[in-house]
Amino acid sequence: MVLALGGSSAESWEFAVDSFYAVWGYALFMWFAGSAMCFYVWLQAHKLFTKVIPTRFNRQRREVCFMPEGATQPLFVPWESLSAWVVQGQSATQYGITRHYGMGMGFMHEGELVSVEFQCGALQLAIANWEAVRGYMEYELNDLHAIQDPLELQAPGDPPHEGLHTFRNARASLHRRIREKEVGWIYGFFWYVYHVMTLWTLPNHLVEWEIKRIAKVGRKALPEAMREWSEPLPPEQWAKPSAELLRLSAKVKALVKRSPRRAITEIFAEVNRP
């Protein structure tokens, strides 16, 4: 800047040094404050493992188990009486419009809504979360691999989280694709550049450490009623879907087969239209 105004290189260097010393204290404070805030959020999220019992889905019984906050006994609700929703909101500031998405499910109990809700990164992700749950309960999805590993980054026997094995499988897949001429060396070069810029395997090591910490901390013990409810049933005792659900499911599948690129929300709306 000083050079642009006609100053010498020495004056420019002095200006840069003075600017650095003028702001480094504020920058260091902001870094510590931001790190402390992130650590607090992370710690609070980990404490939930010892405080919250997650909602459980039992497709053999075709029931959902809720454990509301502060309750001493779980609530069991038939799967087909469960309500689910996806919400979208937006807020405007001087910097632009920010959109928010979320997904929730619940039911009415003694005149009050018992529900669980969580934020999602996009409307499609919110719908996908519900579709994963619905697909599991209707025996269309039987394992995590069907919905969690479209890039085949997990070998048989690998744990479901994205740890070191994920990185190694991705690198092996890259080398295979290069050998088979599926991608070129330029693609491989930028693959390595990207992972070097994202600290190589450090994120995967952090995931492995976090998984071990969660296992060490443990989770909140399940009530006896929930443990008994979670026990498997013999096939002859499995609950059956209602005739109405089978009719609607068949109609949805027919519409999806006819228009595979059509939004699933439009198909659901058409099926439920009077």
Results as ranks from 00 to 15, higher is better:
V52D: 03
E244R: 07
K240C: 11
F189C: 09
Q94V: 08
W229N: 14
E266M: 03
K257R: 10
L3R: 05
W24F: 10
N169P: 05
D143R: 12
S249Q: 04
G157P: 04
A239M: 02
T201G: 04
L248Y: 04
N169C: 10
E14P: 00
Q73D: 08
G102K: 13
Q154I: 07
G163Y: 06
E14F: 05
A225S: 15
G135P: 07
D149S: 07
P260D: 03
E117A: 14
G121V: 06
T50A: 11
E270V: 06
W24N: 14
A128C: 15
H100L: 02
G25H: 11
G218A: 05
K257N: 13
Q124R: 06
P74F: 01
P235N: 03
E231F: 09
M137A: 08
R213W: 14
R177M: 12
N204P: 05
G7M: 02
V2C: 05
I186S: 04
H145C: 12
G163R: 05
L164S: 00
P68A: 00
W13F: 10
N58C: 06
N272H: 13
A84R: 01
P54L: 03
A254Q: 08
L233W: 01
F49Q: 15
R258Y: 04
F29A: 09
R258L: 15
E231N: 01
A16K: 08
A269H: 01
L123I: 07
S91I: 02
M137I: 12
P160W: 13
F190A: 02
M103T: 11
R247K: 02
S12K: 13
A36V: 12
G104L: 08
R171P: 00
L123E: 08
R177T: 02
W31I: 12
R262V: 05
F118P: 09
S9H: 12
I267D: 04
G70P: 02
N142Q: 14
D143P: 07
E228S: 11
L3K: 04
I127A: 06
P235M: 13
A126N: 09
A33R: 12
F76E: 13
S19K: 07
A128F: 15
N204E: 08
Q60Y: 02
T166E: 11
E162V: 14
A239Q: 03
D143Q: 14
Y26Q: 14
L48K: 15
V77E: 14
Q94W: 12
A71V: 00
F189H: 01
S19R: 09
S173W: 00
R177E: 15
N204I: 02
C120Q: 11
D143Y: 12
G163C: 11
V86F: 06
G184E: 04
S9T: 11
A16D: 10
F190I: 07
K251Y: 04
T55A: 05
W79V: 01
L125K: 11
L222R: 10
Q154N: 07
T93S: 14
S115E: 15
L246V: 03
